[in-house]
Simulated assay, not measured.
Amino acid sequence: MNIIILLLAYLLGSIPSGVWIGKLFYQKDICNYGSGNTGTTNTFRVLGKKAGIVVLLADVLKGTLATSLPLLFHSDMPILWGGIAAIIGHTFPIFAKFKGGKAVATSAGMLLAYSPLFFVYAASIFVICLLITSMVSLSSMIAAVVVTISTIILPYIWPTILPEFNWVLTLVAAAVSCFIFYRHKDNIVRIKNGTENKVPFGLNKKK
């Protein structure tokens, strides 16, 4: 049963929302534009705000649903493993020639299923970073690191948000953080060179 759950979670994560919406409603394959990624950021860049919001919600929700599968199937498997399978699916989707996104939104969906309050906390960190840096890539990496550290310290300083320490959560958060940094390796080069794409708002917005 656990293998079936992980397979279903991977398939959910593999749904290339940006690609399907682009082809169906805009007659565009976003893999051929912008960064070539199938995720939320490139969808915003290529297809616009409406499509970007839809893809963002879809990518978050597929992470949430995949993470919840062990509960839905009454399995004793830790729910976070379903989230990991979805993240792998989102990054290497079987439905899009294994060329996917950078797993930020799907990772957020995993947190939403695990702890809604912790999800709000993590999302707030990302938004604050985005308002300061005006860069989605840098905000994603900073938030990933802060969230990983928070899984260790929050149970002791702010238990309302995260009541107890869970080593599985910390391990998963650390692994996802490394994964996010790896997927943003090209962005890191552009950040160093001062050529990274910026959103049109925030303290460091594009001019």
Rank of each mutant, 00 (worst) to 15 (best):
K198N: 02
Q27E: 02
I180Q: 07
G39D: 05
V147L: 06
I188G: 03
L11F: 12
V176S: 11
T160H: 13
M77S: 07
I128T: 09
F119K: 04
G82D: 00
K97D: 12
V147N: 05
P70Q: 03
A113V: 03
T148G: 09
I191R: 01
T64N: 02
L138W: 04
G101T: 02
P16S: 08
H74P: 05
Y26V: 03
E196P: 03
L72R: 03
V145T: 09
I142T: 01
G48T: 13
S150V: 10
F73K: 00
S140V: 06
V176M: 04
P16L: 01
M141P: 02
I152G: 01
E196Y: 13
K62S: 03
Y121F: 15
K198W: 11
F181E: 09
A58F: 10
V146T: 06
G82V: 11
F98G: 10
I153Q: 00
R45C: 06
V60S: 00
N166V: 05
V54H: 01
M135N: 07
S35M: 00
M141A: 12
Q27I: 05
I30H: 08
K207V: 14
A174S: 14
F44V: 05
P155R: 01
K102Q: 07
V55R: 05
P116D: 05
I5A: 06
F181Y: 14
I79V: 15
C129P: 05
I191V: 14
Y114W: 14
L11H: 06
N37W: 00
T160E: 11
E196G: 04
V120I: 15
N2Q: 14
Y33W: 05
T106M: 02
E196C: 09
A9R: 10
P116C: 09
F95N: 07
K206F: 10
I79T: 11
N166T: 06
V147D: 06
